[in-house]
Each structure stands twice: as C-alpha cells, then as structure tokens.
Simulated assay, not measured.
Amino acid sequence: MSEHNTGGYRTADVPVHGGALRCGLWGPEDPAAPVLLAVHGVTASHKTWGLVAARLPHVRIIAPDLRGRGRSNGLPGPYGMAAHAEDLAAVLGAFEVESAVVAGHSMGAFVSVVLAHRYPRLVRSLVLIDGGLPLQVPPGLSDDEVIEAVLGPAAERLGTRYASREAYRSFWRQHPAFARNWNPLVEEYVDYDLAGEESGLRPATRFEAMREDTADLNRGPDLRAALAALAVPTLLLRAPRGLMDEPAGLYTQAHARCWEGQLERLTVRDVPDVNHYTIVMDAPGAGVVAEAVAAALVPDAPAEPGGPSAVAAPTAPR
C-alpha cells in the first residue's frame, strides 16, 4: 500500500482484485482513533466527502474511489454491489480496521448495506445518505430505462468530451443542483472528476461501471437480501429534492417511511432544504451528516443524532 500526504489530506493506493483502489484519507493516523468508512455515489469520487471531513477533524476518515471511478477508473469489472463490498472489506483490512461506522451517499449507501450483510464484524452502524433503499421506478423497465429515469443527464455526461477544465467547471456551475450552491469543495470535486488529456477531457467514471452498478442495485439479489437481514443501527438521511434540484426527491417520504416500518433497525430523518448532491456537498447538509456520524461513533449510541426527527408522521404509501 502506497501513501501520499499533503497536509491533513492524503491518499493511499490499496491492492484489490485487478489493481489498486485509490483512497482519500482525512484525520489522525492514530490507529486508535474512531473510523468512518465513507462511500461515494455512482458517478462520483472520494472528493465528495471534503466538507464532512472538515467537520470531523478527530475522526479517521477512509474514503475510496470505487472501482471504475476517480483514480480507480482503471480497475476492470465485474462491478455490482457485492464486488464493491469485497473491495471495501479489503480497504478496511489494509488499514487494519476491525470495525467502522460506514456512511454511504447515493449508490454508496447501497454498497454499504451489502457490506454490512457480507462482513457484519466490520460494520458497527450505517449512515445512509439519500440511498440504500430499493429505487422507486415502475416495474418492467429495461436497464437503460432505469438509468434514464434515475440518473438522466448524469449518465449522458459520461459520454461527453470537454475542451478544458474550465469548460467542465462551467457545465457544473450551471447545473441546477449547484447553481445556487457553488463552493470550493464542489470546484475541487469537479476538477478531480476528469480523465484524459487537455485536448479531450472526459469524466473519470466508466460508463460500463455506472450501467452495471445501476442495474445491479435495481434488480440484483444482494441488496434485497442485505436489507432483509439488516442487523446494525441504520439511519437514512433523506433529501427532499432530487438530482436536478427538482421538488421530487430520489425517494418520497412515504416510500422511506414504509421501509422504516418494515426494518426494525432503520430510522428515517429528512434533511430540509437540500437536494441529492447538497445533502453532503454543501452546508448545512454536510453538517447534518457529520452530526449523524459523530452520534454513531459514540459507543453504544443509536445511529440517529439527538433531537426530534424532521420526518412527519408516517403516511401509508399508495
């Protein structure tokens, strides 16, 4: 395992099947420090977690670029929730972590649930950030139709070439999710999310990784089995607005509360005034996530932070 240190932030390359997984690291290097394993979304990277890390300076944060993304984009498939869970277990083993709180954003939440099922000794509790429950899509859709329904322009972006880094920044500055929420973290995230030469820059995520993973989290068996066996305290933080800042979030409140009623270890909490991205990549969303992680790291504490839930009374889904 090789490491590169720049101030408080550093990176490490961890051997996994087929190559090495790039990991972003924040916080103390003391092996006795509390550990957060932070897992990003379907077209994202470990740079998602910078604002959360800044709010948890005493926590040892390990945030991999998942297989097929970021600086792990050279890793081949197979992809899917189980494959990513195997990689995450290898990462925790490389850092000699016996047990961690695991936070997953978007697709990272699905991976986190499967990790907890396959490696229960490694996961003490889960913080799921706008992900981890079955998608709300009509039955019978093809994989491509599911990608279009859930990801839309995010999937189209992977096939686009950009003339310069500034052109890519311009795309994101105009994105509805960030038009009113641009900040230095987002710019750093956007700059990191490019591969290739200046004459032909493209997003780092492999299209085939995104496609295979989206199909697996929608219809694969691993997620359903993991949810059915959910055995650790689990908090779902729900964004009321979606990927394009639209009023309909990834999950309706009724859908999330229905699953809360079915799963004894699941608690649902709404995070007001955030969308699918800003729940973790802007204030105050990142502050709520950090609060939830800090609460989960307290020995024998429930995953939900103190105070009343922002969720309204349960509503039966129709």
Rank of each mutant, 00 (worst) to 15 (best):
M1C: 04
G8E: 15
P15G: 09
P15S: 13
R22V: 08
G27R: 03
D30V: 07
P31A: 14
P31L: 09
A32V: 03
P34G: 08
L36C: 09
H40C: 10
T43G: 01
T48P: 01
L51I: 13
V52T: 02
L56N: 05
V59C: 05
V59Q: 02
P64D: 02
D65E: 05
L66C: 11
S72P: 07
N73A: 15
Y79T: 07
Y79G: 08
D87P: 06
L88Y: 01
A100E: 08
V102I: 07
S106A: 13
A116K: 00
V123F: 09
V127N: 01
D144T: 11
V146C: 05
A149D: 04
V150I: 15
L151G: 06
P184Y: 12
E187M: 05
T205S: 14
R206E: 09
M210I: 08
G220R: 03
L230A: 11
A231E: 11
T234I: 01
R265M: 15
T267Q: 15
D270S: 10
D273N: 15
N275C: 12
N275Y: 08
D282R: 11
A286I: 05
V288Q: 11
A294I: 06
D300C: 11
D300E: 15
A303H: 08
A310E: 15
P317C: 10
P317L: 04
